[in-house]
């Protein structure tokens, strides 16, 4: 969010301002660890997400919103773990010295859910509808699974499609919308990620997609940058964060970070009359 996905954060801040949502950044956040620890005895790795929830509590707030799908998943799974297991919560609280005890009262909400529930997609003040743009949502894994933390139906989510339709885009469904992109294997099994990227993007392309829209910086890197190794097999497919298209349709000026992507979406958006 602060480095390679800066365009995701920047456009969210601008969109929030335009919609009257006041976002406060945690003054002392730490990395959540990015992946939720799945072992029953591994409480040490649950401290990072729980510490972030304590920061929210310390500020006197009861809700934290996240953009990154991985942060959302890690924070919410850790939150549910301690809410359902008071013994583990007590053990972690007694381990942490300088922080106040976590009470288990913070709600973790993804920004998509916040937009849907607090603003309502139908109430978005769309100035420049995305007319003529065929978009497919890509949810990936961590907004939807495991089921307990899913922001929507884990087998057939529609939340991002609803948002894109409200922005005026032509939305098409495709079977790979919840398929894993290969995630962190992009470091040591690059070929696996290339194969997944090919499956996901060619499926979208076969259904007429012109742009793939998502919410995870790691999915973005994989689906976007890994196209470098697929130039022979695949026509370039722009990958965008949902907040970039939202900002564009709300008519927000300024840099929406389109030039930070490997596949530049600007020619497509210009062709569609969505960018000057």
């Amino acid at each position: 969010m602060k480095s390679t996905a800066k365009n995701f954060e920047d456009t969210t801040i601008e969109v929030s301002k335009a919609l009257g949502i006041e976002l406060l950044e945690l003054p002392r956040w730490n990395c959540c660890g990015t992946v939720y620890s799945l072992a029953s005895d591994d409480l040490i790795h649950q401290l990072a997400p729980i510490r972030n929830l304590i920061r929210v509590q310390e500020m006197g707030y009861d809700t934290v919103t996240t953009l990154c799908s991985m942060c959302y998943n890690t924070l919410e799974q850790a939150n549910q773990l301690v809410k359902n297991d008071p013994e583990k919560l007590e053990k972690m609280n007694s381990f942490m010295d300088s922080e106040e005890d976590y009470k288990g009262d913070v709600t973790v909400i993804h920004y998509l859910t916040l937009l849907k529930e607090e603003i309502g997609f139908e109430n978005l003040p769309v100035e420049h509808p995305l007319t003529g743009l065929t978009a497919v949502p890509y949810y990936g894994c961590l907004l939807l699974r495991p089921e307990e933390v899913s922001i929507d139906n884990p087998e057939n989510p529609t939340i991002m499609a609803e948002l894109l339709a409200a922005l005026g885009a032509h939305v098409v469904d495709h079977p790979y919308k919840l398929e894993c992109c290969g995630s962190y294997h992009t470091v040591d099994y690059k070929e696996v990620v290339c194969e997944k990227t090919y499956s996901i993007l060619s499926s979208a392309q076969n259904r007429g997609a012109e742009v793939v829209v998502l919410s995870c910086p790691l999915c973005e890197f994989n689906l976007d940058v890994r196209q470098k190794d697929l130039e022979k097999e695949l026509a370039p497919m722009p990958i965008l964060y949902f907040t970039q298209l939202l900002a564009l349709s709300l008519g927000l000026d300024g840099n929406l970070g389109f030039d930070s992507h490997y596949v530049n979406p600007e020619p497509l958006l210009r062709k569609k009359g969505l960018l000057r």
Binding site: S3, T34, S37, C68, M70, T186, F221
Partner: peptide, 22 residues
């Protein structure tokens, strides 16, 4: 053993998650 070019290109989220799992 990760080459320098990859290290410069990979986002922090990829490296952190990979090292956490591997």
């Amino acid at each position: 053993e990760i080459n320098k070019e990859d290290l410069e290109e990979l986002p922090p989220v990829a490296l952190v998650s990979n090292f956490r799992k591997s």
